[in-house]
Amino acid sequence: MRGVTELLRPVWRTLPWPSLGAGSAAGLLLAGMARLYPENFDPWLALNTLRTAALAFALGLAFLLDDPARHTTATVPVPRFVRQSLRLALVAPIAALWWTATVLLIPAELRPPVGATTLEAGAACALALAGSAAWIRRSQEPEPGVSVAAGLLTVAVLAALLLPDDWELLVAVGDPGWDAAHGRWGVLLGAAVGGWLISTREPART
């Protein structure tokens, strides 16, 4: 426990604040457009604005595990799971506040169901974290953020364009497939969390 406490300050200082800040700012700016120009928005555009804002934040979150001093910090007597969880724990309250502000920037009459959109945002963020953790586990790269963010963006675009109707994720509010789509979002979130947990284990030593 003492080792974890001693890590708080250095971990806070080494978090990738520029990337996190850029993702957060982009998301807030997008959502703010709905507040500034509500006459140009309809519920479908407002929903996709929130989705794009969540993706922007997830792209910033892909850099969360970047650590230029990775090969130095790996020698501390604190497991990888704890080190990575500590980074997540420090950012989680900020992420919650950011998402609350982003949702509230969408005018109430245009705002989509908050629970469902939060599920989508959570899945996107979990995928970013799982991708970063997996990349770190399988390589010696100390800063996988750029590669993971590019991969996440590519997957998002392909999912929007190529998924068949039976697997569609980006459906409109009121669409008959809304509930089924969010069932798939839940599965995606669970898989991403599971992938993150697996990837944060220390690799087997030979």
Rank of each mutant, 00 (worst) to 15 (best):
L163V: 00
D165V: 05
L8H: 01
V4F: 04
L29H: 01
L20P: 07
G115A: 12
A101V: 13
L189S: 04
R9V: 03
T102M: 15
G194D: 09
A34N: 11
R9I: 02
V4E: 10
P10M: 11
V171N: 03
W185H: 10
E141P: 00
I198P: 02
W167D: 12
A56K: 12
F41Q: 04
R184G: 07
L188A: 15
V78M: 09
R87G: 10
P113D: 06
A25S: 05
W196N: 10
L7S: 03
V148R: 10
Q84E: 15
D42K: 02
W185Y: 07
R184E: 04
I198E: 13
A108N: 00
P113W: 06
A56M: 15
R137P: 01
L36W: 14
V76N: 01
D66L: 06
S132M: 01
N40S: 07
Q140A: 14
R51Y: 07
Y37Q: 08
G195S: 14
G27T: 04
R9M: 01
A130S: 15
S199N: 09
W44E: 15
L55F: 04
P113S: 04
G183I: 10
D179C: 01
R138E: 12
E143W: 02
T118Q: 05
D42A: 00
T118E: 07
L45F: 09
A130M: 10
N40V: 00
I198Q: 13
A34R: 08
L161I: 10
G21I: 03
G186C: 08
L158M: 12
L65W: 08
A69R: 15
L61G: 10
A191P: 03
A191S: 13
G186H: 04
A22L: 13
P10K: 13
